[in-house]
Design a protein around this nucleic acid. Structure first.
Length: 612
RNA sequence: GGUCGCGUAGCUCAGCUGGAUAGAGCAUCUGCCUUCUAAGCAGACGGUCGAAGGUUCGAAUCCUUCCGCGAUCACCA
C-alpha cells in the first residue's frame, strides 16, 4: 500500500475525529525541497468544509497523525501547508519490498483488451527521413509504454505502396535508369528509388519550364507536362493489372522494403503486422452501403456519398466519389474495420500521424462512432508536430531532407569521436566499440526527440547537432554505466567486503537488511531517502505516460532519477562505506536505480551500455 | 476568414487535472579528479510565464478578447 493511500484515510479520520466532518477528498503534493518533510497535505481545499484558520487546522491534523500513524514521525505547518515527515523505516520497508520485483513499475494485472498501435506508415517512393524517425520513435515508445501499463499491443504500419508517387519513381527509372539495380549503384534500395523520384521531379520541372516558355500558363503546364501524363497513365495501367507495370512495381517496392528493413533494424523498431495499401485501398465501399442504410451517410444527385457533420461543428465530408471509387477516408474506414476482423480482441487503436492530419482523424473517428462500432470510442490520434529545419520544411522532392540513415550514421560518428577523446575503452575490440558508439549515438538522438512533448514542433539544426551532455541520452546512459561499474567491483572484491552473496542470493541480503531496518532506521541518509522516493514514483509515471500517450513523461522522470542518483553518488561513498549494512543498502539502491534506468529506457527504445 | 495546436531565461525544453519563492540543460563565469567512470558534482548569472481583462483564499495552469507562429479547411493521399 502506498503512503498516500494510507495518509488519505488517516487525514479523513483526523478531520472526522477533531471536527466531526466527513471530508470527500484530500489533496497531497510532494513537499518542496526547501521545506522539511516528505509529503504535504494542502489544507486550503478543506476550508470549504472545515471553518477556521488553515494553519490552526493543519497543526491539529498534524498532531493527530503524528500520534496515531506510525509512518508519520513529525510535521510542521507553514501557511496552509501541512508538511509530514515520513519515518525512514517506511521507505526502507518499501524499498525492501520492491527490490526483488522484476519489471518493477510494470502493471501485471492489466485488462485483456488489446490495442493496435500504428506508426511509420511510409510511402515507398523514397527513403525515410527525420520526420519518419520522430514518428517511429513515438509510435514504438507508446506501444512499449502501453504494454508496460498492462495492455496487449499489436504494432502495425500501413505501407503506402501504390499511387502516383511510386509511379513517378518507376517512370524515371525506366527513362534514366538503364536497368540500374541497388547492387550496381551501391545504394540501399530505398535510396535508389528515392533518387529516381528526385530525377522525376527534375525532369518534370524542365518540361514545365519548356511549356511556359511556349506561352502556356503555369497552372496548365503543371497539369499537362507529358512526363506527368505518362505517370498517370502508368497508374491507370497498374490499377488495370498491366503485367509489365505490376512487375516493375513489385521489383522496385521490393528494393524499397529491403532498404526500410535495414533502417528499421538500425532504429530498433519492429512491427507485428504489416498492411499494404495495395490490399486495402478498395476496402470500405461496402461499409458505405451499410452507412447509407443506417442514414449515417447520404447520396447527392451525382451519386457521390457524403456525411454531414455540421452538427458537430465540422463540415460535410465526402466518403465515396461520384464514380463510385474510394477516397482516403473510405480506405481508412475499411482498414480500421479490417483490423478488428483480423484481431478480434482489439478494443482501441492508436494512429501515429503528423498533426497536419488532425482534422482527418477527427472526422474518421466520428464516422466510425456514428456507424456504431463499440471500439470506436477508444481511438486515439497520436498527433505530433513537424520536424522543421532552420531552412524551413523538409521536402523529399527537392532533396532538402535529413535522411534517416545518414543521421543515424552521423550520430554514431559523433559518439565515436567523443568517446575516443575520453579514451576509456582501450581494451575494447573494434566491434565492441562500434556497437557501443551506435548505442550512444542513437541514445542521444532518440532521447533528444522523445523528451519533448509530441504536440510541439521540433526545430532541428543539423549544424548544432544533438548534445551529449546535460539532459541527454548519453548522460543517463553514463550513469547506468557507472552503476554497472560499481556492481562489477562488488563481485570482484569478495574477500574485502564479504559481498559474495549480493547478486546471487537475495534472501540472505534481505534478512540482513531487515536487521538493519530494525536497529538503525534513523540513519537513512537524505540522499538515500530521496532516491527511494524517486524510485517509488516509477509505476505511477508509467501509468500517466500510458494515459497521456507521452514518452516525454518517462524521459523526464528518468532524468530526475538520474540527477538524484548522481548527487547521491557524489556525496556518499558506496563501496567505501565502513558500516556493512549501509554499504549493502547503497549497493542495492544503485542496482535498483540501474534497473529502473534500463527499464525506462527500454520504454523509449533506447539501449544502455555496461561501460562508456 | 472558420477550426485546431503552440507561445515560459540568450537558446532547447519541464511544470499546465489551480497551491508555497516558476524549474532543468546548453551557453557564460567559479570551484571539485592521489578515493566507486569528471559524458559527472557543487555554485553564480539569467524570467513583466506573448498582452490585457476575468473567475478565487490562491493563476504559468481555468475562462474571454487580442497579438505572433504553425497546421488545416480537395470527388489528393
Amino acid at each position: 500500500m502506498d503512503i498516500q493511500s494510507i495518509l488519505k484515510a488517516k487525514v479523513k479520520e483526523a478531520v472526522k475525529s477533531i471536527f466531526d466532518i466527513e471530508l470527500p477528498s484530500v489533496e497531497f503534493q510532494p513537499t518542496r525541497k526547501d521545506f522539511e518533510g516528505d509529503i504535504t497535505v494542502v489544507v486550503f481545499p478543506m476550508l470549504r468544509y472545515v471553518k477556521g484558520n488553515p494553519e490552526q487546522i493543519g497543526r491539529q491534523i498534524g498532531a493527530f497523525l503524528e500520534e496515531r500513524v506510525e509512518e508519520v514521525s513529525g510535521f510542521n505547518v507553514i501557511k496552509g501547508f501541512l508538511n509530514l515527515i515520513i519515518d525512514d523505516a517506511f521507505y526502507l520497508h518499501f524499498f525492501n519490498s520492491i527490490y526483488e520485483t522484476e519489471n518493477y513499475g510494470h502493471n501485471t494485472d492489466g485488462d485483456t483488451d488489446a490495442v493496435m498501435v500504428e506508426y511509420s506508415s511510409p510511402n515507398t517512393n523514397k527513403p525515410l527521413h527525420l520526420g519518419h524517425i520522430r514518428n517511429n520513435l513515438l509510435g514504438y515508445s507508446v506501444a512499449e509504454i502501453l504494454k508496460a501499463s498492462g495492455k496487449k499491443v499489436y504494432k502495425t504500419q500501413i505501407i503506402n505502396d501504390r499511387g502516383i508517387h511510386i509511379c513517378k519513381s518507376m517512370l524515371a527509372w525506366q527513362r534514366f535508369g538503364n536497368g540500374e539495380t541497388p547492387e550496381d549503384a551501391g545504394l540501399k534500395g530505398d535510396q535508389l528509388v528515392g533518387k529516381y523520384y528526385v530525377a522525376f521531379d527534375k525532369a518534370y520541372k524542365v518540361e514545365i519550364a519548356e511549356l511556359t516558355a511556349q506561352g502556356i500558363e503555369k497552372d496548365k503546364a503543371e497539369k499537362e507536362a507529358p512526363i506527368l501524363l505518362e505517370a498517370q497513365e502508368m497508374l491507370r495501367k497498374w490499377e488495370a493489372g498491366d503485367e509489365a507495370v505490376v512487375a516493375l512495381w513489385a521489383t522496385m517496392n521490393g528494393w524499397v522494403y529491403t532498404g526500410f528493413e535495414e533502417t528499421y533494424t538500425n532504429l530498433g523498431v519492429d512491427f507485428d503486422k504489416l498492411y499494404y495499401e495495395s490490399d486495402t485501398y478498395l476496402l470500405g465501399k461496402n461499409v458505405v452501403e451499410d452507412g447509407l442504410k443506417k442514414r449515417v451517410f447520404y447520396k447527392k444527385e451525382d451519386g457521390s456519398v457524403w456525411i454531414d457533420l455540421t452538427d458537430e461543428g465540422l463540415d460535410e465530408k465526402i466518403v465515396l466519389r461520384s464514380d463510385g471509387t474510394a477516397v482516403y477516408m473510405t480506405q481508412d474506414i475499411g482498414t480500421a474495420i479490417q483490423r478488428v476482423k483480423d484481431y478480434p480482441d482489439i478494443n482501441g487503436m492508436v494512429y501515429t500521424v503528423g498533426n497536419e492530419q488532425d482534422y482527418h482523424f477527427k472526422v474518421l473517428f466520428l464516422i466510425l462512432k456514428k456507424l456504431g462500432f463499440s471500439w470506436a470510442t477508444n481511438l486515439y490520434h497520436l498527433s505530433y508536430g513537424m520536424v522543421d529545419l532552420p531552412s524551413g520544411k523538409m521536402k523529399s522532392r527537392e532533396g532538402t531532407v535529413v535522411d534517416a540513415d545518414d543521421l543515424m550514421e552521423d550520430m554514431t560518428r559523433t559518439a565515436a569521436q567523443l568517446s575516443e577523446e575520453l579514451g576509456k575503452l582501450e581494451d575494447y575490440s573494434d566491434v565492441e566499440k562500434q556497437e557501443l558508439y551506435r548505442i550512444i549515438g542513437l541514445g542521444a538522438l532518440k532521447y533528444y526527440i522523445l523528451k519533448v512533448d509530441p504536440k510541439k514542433r521540433i526545430l532541428f539544426d543539423p549544424q548544432e547537432s544533438v548534445d551529449f551532455q546535460g539532459n541527454t541520452g548519453p548522460f543517463i546512459q553514463y550513469t547506468y554505466a557507472r552503476i554497472q561499474s560499481i556492481l562489477r567491483k562488488v563481485d570482484s572484491n569478495l574477500d574485502l567486503s564479504g559481498f559474495k552473496n549480493l547478486t546471487n542470493q537475495g534472501v540472505n541480503l534481505s534478512a540482513r537488511l531487515n536487521d538493519f531496518v530494525g536497529q538503525a532506521v534513523e540513519e537513512l541518509h537524505p540522499k538515500e531517502k530521496e532516491l527511494i522516493k524517486q524510485i517509488q514514483l516509477f509505476p505511477e509515471i508509467i501509468g500517466l505516460a500510458a494515459e497521456n500517450y507521452s514518452p516525454a513523461l518517462i524521459a523526464n522522470y528518468v532524468y530526475d532519477l538520474v540527477k538524484e542518483f548522481n548527487s547521491f553518488y557524489q556525496q556518499v561513498s558506496i563501496l567505501g562505506e565502513a558500516d556493512e549494512n549501509k554499504k549493502i543498502l547503497r549497493v542495492r539502491l544503485s542496482k535498483k536505480v540501474g534497473e529502473v534506468i534500463r527499464s525506462a529506457f527500454q520504454l523509449l527504445g533506447i539501449q544502455v551500455p555496461d561501460r562508456m
